Amino acid sequence: MEEMECGIEKKAAAMAAAEEVGRKEEAAAGDVGLKELSRKLNDFAKARDWEQYHSPRNLLLAMIAEVGELSELFMWKGEVRKGLADWDEAEKEHLGEELADVLLYLVRLSDICGVDLGDAATRKIVKNAAKYPAPSKEGA
Rank of each mutant, 00 (worst) to 15 (best):
G68K: 10
L34C: 14
R108F: 03
I64K: 10
N58L: 15
G78A: 12
A13M: 06
I8G: 05
Y132F: 15
L73Q: 07
L95S: 09
A12E: 02
R108W: 02
Y105A: 12
L61A: 06
H54E: 15
E79C: 09
I112Y: 01
L73H: 14
I64F: 04
I125K: 15
A120F: 13
E36Y: 12
K82F: 01
I125A: 02
K124S: 11
W50Y: 05
E138P: 03
A28V: 09
A18E: 03
A100H: 03
E66K: 05
K92S: 01
A47L: 11
A13N: 07
E5M: 10
L70M: 04
Q52E: 10
H94L: 03
R108N: 13
E69S: 02
A14Y: 06
M1E: 10
E98H: 04
G78N: 10
C113R: 13
S136G: 09
E25A: 04
W87V: 03
I8K: 02
A120S: 11
A129C: 14
V32T: 14
F74G: 00
S71L: 05
K92R: 05
M63F: 02
G114E: 05
G68V: 01
A134M: 15
K35W: 00
E93N: 12
L34P: 06
M15V: 11
G7W: 15
S55A: 12
M4D: 07
F44A: 10
L70R: 14
M63A: 15
T122S: 13
